[in-house]
Design a protein around this nucleic acid. Structure first.
Length: 967
RNA sequence: GGUCCCGUAGCUCAGGUGGUCAGAGCGCGCGGCUGAUAACCGCGAGGUCGGAGGUUCAAGUCCUCCCGGGACCA
């Protein structure tokens, strides 16, 4: 019988599915955004401009979870700014040049296998179509290189050709992956550092720096990768533990009758020895060995050296460090060479002997001190780490090491020491040593001629430091220390690389005297050819095309010149995008936001700052946001060897992009963040809750037409709007502050509150009251605003789900995508602080009685749902007045059938609380078969007065407000 | 080796200048509902705030050292 009444109720109804099926459905919305040109409209509208300049990921593989974190955060910012009405600029970029791609091309076997595997993966037909072309280009380049060698310009051109295609392939792959993440951008408006337009502009940037005197050519030792056959920038170095030789030897003084004791971990650098350094502040001992020889070393190291070398003997004299300056010593390897004693502050006695072998061609400190003493920068090692003829030619007693590796040469050096009788001891030492970041192989220090950008020219460094402190906002604030230190300490920028795949430094070499120079005119002319589409022009065109009329060598007046083929450091490529892209494309300068991982303090943020300051005179960004790295569930870095790598593509395929994005929003990204199965499971739970909330809102608005004016709404609905107002204000504040995890918690906790209290309390009114009565429409009005605001607030985080709900939402004149909607502030009238205070108290009271209801239910089995219950209360203090004021709504708020204020509350279970003396029991009378509420005077089986009115379509609210029983 | 950051319930996170600061949500356990139902509601149990010292009348909150993790630099 009761069942009949169900048809007379207004049950929620919606086609918005409970289950997201995100992996299937999200691509539909992505296609929609693209087809409707959503982003194109956002970037073209008439409004204040907001620029987020994208840091370019390297195009040589699939995206990893860190890329996903990065792009999701950027997308949050951009989507939020768009919602708030800005015209947004967000041009995705890729970094294409550089060793890793060139290496991939040269390492063809491995790469071809990788490309073959790519064909089996889930990539588009477009990508698959590109693979064949890449493969044949690589084949051609390799064949040419084997036949003609790397230095042949045509070989370089072919390598560049293959690299270009290989990079383009991965750009396409990553583009699809970012698309699948839900990034909102114009996919036809991207930038690649290998775009001819950008290469041309970059060449012009270099020309301008040359004109302004920032660029110089220097000869000095730099970390050199034998594998890359290139000098490395600081950003390309990593430190690992390495085992090195620990060599002790003697050098004979030519002025006194003693030897000095020297220690080194790089025996091969002895070929480049040019001096011995002593500490000016240290005392040295003269130590008599049993064999009669006297050896000099640091007094501080006396005990350690005795122990390490097992030396018996006695101190027979002392000398100050300063006394050794200018003393002549025999070169460690060659009798016919002399190495002077010099003084250097960096000499310590913590390791070794307090006397340091100086090779200005093989160490930075050695070079610096060598400059002071006018020592030769001697570096007889070629790009592969093999000795050159200079190693032998420097002496009449050569060791014949030409062509030998530094390891073999080092052995010969030790043999020579033994021949000379100056060998003391050879051991091993483990220490932290610089390695090539790509190959993980130890580096050597080798002096070469390179092009540098001076950081102190025109006070560049000082100006940059000032800008860091005064003009840029750093989020989180601690990152200011990192960027400041990295700018303050960095050495001059080594711009040149001896490779093929990059933007050329079009230096010109005088064939008569060997002088190399940069000619701005050449660079400008070359830029024109590149801009016209020939990135390889420097290789393919004759130099005459670029040299100015009548150009002569400034050193010797010579007129015959050749081209040099060094390329620019890739950090210059990406560092100059603030000019080549932001200015080159007339987007605007500076950008509002740069947002990258905190490793970019010494990378992209640093490089961009240098280029921007030198070129434009101000920092390229107003705000810099940094995020941490993604670790596994145990907080360990991800690595293939640990097998703990979480791939964003797999997460998206399994749970959907919105779940991955919700995870991004849920974590404190300014620190390192964790991801793993359990963490994702929690996020999935949260996602379901949010999705169901949207669904419930939609389902109760299926017949909604117009909002009710605020003054006609019921107190609890006005309270709901007041709460909504506060939450949304806070949400906007948190978006502005980039505090997404707080935002996530704010919104999520709000959703939980809605579901457990407000929605629950509304059920009777929504389901059983007259459909068009004021009570139900008042509730729907609140739900309407909640839905609209909640969708807007969540849309930057979970754009697919909110887009889907948006399509179902009964919002008048809504734009066709939520991404095109405006998130405007709610009317201030919604805010009602007095009402919120009242409800806060009422909710506290609810918490106070609920445990008693639980006892009735669980222990005493007297009731099932709360609607079976009756609450009687004797309020304490002023709370009586509060309850009286809301009397008609208390049943709804407490979710029970009967609520009585009484001087003597009676019931089966009592609670003496802060707000009152409560008594709860089973409700009296009979249960209305329609609304399931209990009524004291209701005849059994009959419908209650409220339902009777509703069935006749009558709005009984007026009576409700005067008669509590009517609710 | 140096510098910096992090370490609060199983998970993700709150806890300005030291004094109800031991919290939230989820998860978990127990119960209800079956008119949001592969949903929804209620109640409850979980933490010596990484460890050890110290400063203080009083310390997740300040200092030192140690352990674990991460980053940066040499």
């Amino acid at each position: 019988m009761a069942k009949d009444y169900k048809d007379t109720l207004n049950m929620p109804r919606t086609d918005f599915p409970m289950r997201g099926r995100l992996p299937k459905r999200e691509p539909l919305f992505q296609r929609k955004w693209e087809e409707k040109g959503v982003f194109k409209r956002l970037k073209e509208r008439e409004a204040p401009l907001f620029i987020l300049h994208d840091g370019p990921p390297y195009s040589n593989g699939h995206i990893h979870i860190g890329h996903a974190l990065n792009k999701a955060l950027k997308d949050f910012v951009v989507r939020y700014k768009a919602l708030r009405g800005y015209r947004v600029s967000f041009v995705l970029g890729w970094d294409n040049h550089g060793m890793p791609i060139e290496k991939a091309v040269l390492d063809s076997k491995k790469t071809l296998k990788r490309l073959k595997n790519l064909l089996k993966e889930k990539v588009s037909d477009e990508v698959k179509g590109m693979v064949e072309d890449v493969v044949s280009s690589i084949d051609e380049a390799i064949k040419a290189k084997e036949e003609r060698g790397f230095e042949d310009p045509e070989v370089k051109r072919l390598i560049r050709e293959a690299s270009r295609k290989y990079a383009a392939l991965w750009v396409e792959v990553q583009k699809e992956e970012f698309k699948r993440l839900g990034v909102l951008t114009d996919w036809e408006d991207i930038y690649l550092t290998m775009d001819p337009e950008i290469e041309a502009k970059e060449t012009e940037v270099l020309a301008k720096f040359t004109e302004e005197g920032y660029i110089y050519r220097g000869y000095m030792p730099l970390p050199w990768s034998r594998e890359s056959q290139s000098a490395l920038a600081m950003a390309e170095i990593e430190y690992y533990e390495k085992e090195s030789p620990s060599l002790w030897f003697l050098a004979k003084s030519l002025d006194n009758d003693y030897y000095i004791l020297v220690w080194t971990t790089t025996p091969w650098t002895l070929f480049g020895n040019r001096a011995f350094a002593f500490s000016p502040g240290m005392e040295y001992v003269l130590f008599r060995l049993p064999d009669g020889r006297t050896v000099v070393f640091s007094a501080e190291a006396l005990d350690r050296i005795r122990e390490t070398l097992g030396w018996e003997g006695e101190v027979v004299g002392r000398k100050k460090g300063t006394e050794f300056e200018g003393e002549k010593f025999q070169h460690p390897l060659f009798k016919d060479r002399v190495s002077p004693g010099i003084l250097a502050d960096f000499v310590s006695a913590e390791e070794g002997s307090g006397i340091v072998h100086i090779a200005p061609g093989h160490g930075k400190e050695d070079y610096e001190i060598g400059k002071v003493y006018g020592l030769e920068v001697f570096s007889p090692v070629d790009e592969r780490g093999n000795f050159t003829k200079e190693a032998d030619e420097q002496t009449a007693h050569p060791l014949n090491v030409v062509g030998l590796s530094i390891e073999e040469g080092g052995k010969r050096a030790i043999e020579r020491l033994k021949e000379l009788g100056t060998f003391v001891k050879l051991g091993k030492i483990r220490h932290s040593y610089p390695h090539d970041w790509r190959y993980k192989k130890p580096l050597i220090f080798r002096a070469t001629s390179q092009w540098f950008l001076s950081l102190d020219h025109k006070d560049l460094r000082e100006r940059a430091l000032k800008a860091i402190l005064n003009d840029v906002k750093w989020h989180p604030p601690e990152s200011i220390n990192r960027i400041y230190a990295s700018v303050k300490e960095r050495p001059d920028w080594v711009l040149s690389r001896q490779r093929a795949w990059g933007v050329f430094i079009p230096a010109v070499k005088c064939e008569d005297c060997g002088w190399e120079t940069l000619v701005p005119e050449v660079m400008h002319r070359l830029a024109e050819d590149i801009r016209a589409g020939n990135s390889d022009a420097w290789l393919t065109e004759p130099l005459d095309r670029y040299l100015p009329e009548g150009f002569k060598c400034e050193k010797c007046g010579g007129t015959r010149f050749s081209k040099r083929y060094d390329i620019l450091d890739v950090w210059f490529d990406s560092g100059s995008t603030c000019i080549t892209v932001l200015k080159g494309r007339n987007i605007g300068y500076p950008a509002d936001v740069y947002l990258e991982g905190w490793d970019q303090h010494r990378g992209w943020f640093n490089a961009s700052l240098m280029v921007g300051m030198a070129y434009e005179g101000k920092a390229p960004y107003r705000t810099v946001i940094t995020h941490g790295f993604v670790l596994d569930e145990e907080g360990r870095a991800m690595s293939k060897s640990l097998g703990n790598v979480v791939s964003p593509n797999e997460v998206i395929d399994k749970y959907g992009a919105d779940v991955l994005r919700l995870w991004v929003a849920s974590v404190e990204y300014t620190q390192d963040v964790r991801i793993g199965e359990e963490i994702l499971k929690r996020v999935v739970d949260a996602y379901r809750k949010i999705r169901n909330t949207f669904r419930y809102l939609l389902s109760n608005l299926y017949d909604f037409t117009d909002p009710l004016p605020l003054e006609e709404m019921l107190p609890s609905d006005r309270w709901a709007l007041s709460r909504l107002y506060g939450v949304m204000e806070e949400a906007k504040r948190l978006y502005e502050a980039y505090e997404f995890n707080r935002l996530y918690r704010l919104l999520y906790n709000y959703v939980v509150e809605l579901s457990s209290f407000y929605f629950e309390s509304l059920k009777d009114r929504l389901y059983t009251w007259a459909p068009q009565g004021r009570g139900r429409r008042s509730a729907q009005t609140a739900l309407y605003y909640i839905l609209q605001q909640l969708l807007l607030a969540f849309s930057p985080i979970i754009p697919h789900t909110t887009e889907e709900a948006w399509e179902y939402a009964p919002i008048k004149d809504k734009p066709e995508s939520i991404a095109l909607a405006l998130w405007e502030d709610l009317p201030k009238e919604f805010k009602d602080e007095a009402l919120e205070r009242d409800f806060a108290l009422l909710l506290n009271m609810r918490e106070e009685v609920y445990p008693a209801l639980e006892v009735l239910r669980r222990d005493r089995k007297l009731i099932g749902q709360n609607l079976d219950a009756r609450i009687e209360v004797k309020p304490k203090g002023e709370y009586g007045r509060l309850l009286e004021r809301y009397l008609p709504y208390l049943k709804e708020i407490f979710g029970v059938s009967q609520f009585v204020i009484s001087g003597e509350p009676t019931g089966d279970e009592k609670v003496d609380g802060e707000y009152g003396l409560w008594a709860v029991s089973h409700a009296k009378g009979n249960k209305c078969p329609r609304c399931w509420m209990w009524w004291e005077d209701l005849p059994e089986g009959e419908v209650c007065p409220k339902c009777a009115a509703a069935l006749k379509g009558e709005d009984h609210l007026q009576r409700v407000e005067t008669d509590a029983d009517m609710l």
